[in-house]
């Protein structure tokens, strides 16, 4: 699924060259649930950007679903992101003044899905994260946890190869965090590949494998023997209109 070989990311700042990633090899198999941990400056954000095809490595190979995407151009990366990757960000990154369903439709808009199909699939995705009753709400009218669930719906609506979550619980209280993790666990159970970046150990415990980053290298790669089970029930919010 994901195969990284000798990935280096070097930022040139004047004459000083900083290696954010110093030659990383990483393999993530299909339907794995992995968390990437590490202190700030460890290179986990650079890793996330490269995994998410938002950025290309300075050196190395990145095979995503068998194709090398390390040398792709900007527009090619857009297409790869659109088809193969679903993003969930710390700050939700929903379009303001735009309803939940329209936010979820957005990736399908750029994929060229006809508008009727877009709407049905978006509503189905929102229902699957328990927001069937909040379809026409705007982000401002939703709580943080609900907004993040809209973002998850947006990430999974295109049926991507991997779902990348960058500190998805960073802006949430513990109850909402557990709800979000419950959704991720359920998505994982239904066969999705999920890579999650976090600096909170107790969030990482919900996953099945933890990769530790330090100074641009992988410091440790451990299987979680008994992943914590998110106990939160996904409550169906509101009544469908």
């Amino acid at each position: 699924m994901i195969d990284l070989k000798g990935i280096k990311k070097i930022y040139a700042n004047g004459d000083i060259q900083v290696a954010a990633l110093a030659g990383v090899d990483l393999h993530v198999g299909a339907s794995e649930f992995v968390s990437i941990m590490g202190p700030s400056g460890s290179g986990k954000s650079s890793m996330m950007n490269i995994l998410g095809c938002l950025d290309t490595p300075t050196e190395g190979e990145y095979f995503l679903d068998g194709t090398d995407v390390a040398k792709a151009s900007g527009d090619q990366l857009s297409v790869i992101r659109n088809r193969k990757i679903g993003f969930v960000f710390q700050g939700f990154n929903l379009l303001p003044r735009t309803t939940a369903v329209e936010n979820v439709e957005l990736p399908m808009l750029y994929a060229g899905v006809p508008s009727k199909e877009r709407r049905t699939r978006a509503i189905a995705a929102l229902e699957s994260v328990g927001l069937g009753g909040r379809v026409y709400h705007k982000p401002k009218e939703l709580s943080g946890g609900q907004q993040q669930r809209v973002a998850i719906a947006r990430a999974l609506v295109t049926k991507p190869s991997i779902i990348l979550a960058d500190e998805p619980t960073g802006n949430l209280d513990s109850k909402s965090s557990e709800e979000v993790m419950a959704i991720f666990q359920r998505l994982h159970e239904s066969g999705n590949t999920i890579v999650l970046v976090t600096h909170e150990p107790d969030i990482a415990e919900f996953t099945e494998r933890i990769v530790h980053f330090r100074d641009g290298n992988i410091e440790g790669d451990e299987k979680v023997a008994n992943p914590r089970k998110a106990r939160a029930q996904i409550v169906e919010e509101g009544v469908a209109k």
Partner: peptide, 16 residues
């Protein structure tokens, strides 16, 4: 800018 970033992240090409 942020909206542009979101759109690009989820698959908008430069032309879009």
């Amino acid at each position: 800018t942020r909206e542009i970033g979101i759109r690009k992240a989820i698959g908008a090409k430069g032309m879009d």
